[in-house]
């Protein structure tokens, strides 16, 4: 969970920074998209480096899901008889209890996101458009429900990271007595920055700041 999660978090940071290029105009954004495909040139040919990144991410996602399913199944076997009384959680807050169903929502969100902005099959600008055209078309004001779905998806990612970042450090044995509170605060701060950084672009398109 921790190692595959860390790979995905590193990707998210890069992805968010890249997205913000939308504020620098269509040329800057499209140029960045071209750079992603020509990374490592001339040593590597077109899209080789990007494909490697995509394969690493896909493997990380599959292993992350495999670990999550294994943990959920072990938890089910460890408590065959459930408690009759329901109780409130005493620890670590709301985010902890969103990890499993939240993970499924994030997965559905990622599938839609790839169909929308990567493959373009559910995007009005389609496969033929430039990345910038697809971005502007997807979050157009009349398609406000797409932006709303992205807000839900990204907030779920944020909640997932709110617990996941700190939990990964704990799993890898990197958290200790004194660093406990600062690490938890840092996990919350990184999650908040990622959520805001990801949401500012679709919202800017929807309200017409980016067009």
């Amino acid at each position: 969970m921790a190692v595959t999660g860390a790979v995905l978090v590193l990707f998210l940071v890069g992805h968010m920074v890249g997205n913000l290029k939308a504020f620098l105009g269509a040329d800057s954004f499209n140029e960045y998209a071209t750079f992603l495909r020509t990374m490592g040139a001339p040593l590597l040919t077109y899209r080789v480096a990007l494909t490697v990144v995509e394969v690493v991410l896909a493997v990380a996602i599959v292993l992350h899901m495999w670990a999550a399913i294994t943990l959920a199944r072990r938890a089910g076997r460890a408590r065959p008889v459930k408690y009759a009384a329901r109780r409130k959680s005493q620890a670590n807050g709301y985010a902890v209890h969103t990890m499993r169903y939240g993970g499924v929502i994030v997965l559905l969100f990622v599938v839609y996101h790839l169909l929308d902005l990567t493959i373009g099959v559910v995007n009005p600008a389609g496969w033929g458009g430039t990345p910038y055209e697809r971005l502007v078309a997807s979050f157009a004001p009349e398609r406000w429900w797409v932006t709303a779905f992205y807000v839900v998806g990204v907030v779920m990612v944020g909640l997932h990271l709110r617990h996941g970042l700190w939990s990964a450090l704990q799993t890898l044995g990197l958290a200790s007595g004194r660093s406990h509170r600062p690490l938890k605060a840092a996990a919350a701060a990184v999650s908040a920055v990622l959520v805001l950084g990801f949401l500012v672009v679709p919202v800017a398109v929807m309200i017409g700041v980016i067009k």
Partner: peptide
């Protein structure tokens, strides 16, 4: 089961054993 760092153990521990 496996640990997912929920912290419920520490919260209910009569001796307050820390999650560390």
């Amino acid at each position: 089961g496996g640990c997912t760092n929920t912290g419920e153990c520490t919260a209910s521990c009569p001796k307050g054993i820390p999650l560390d």
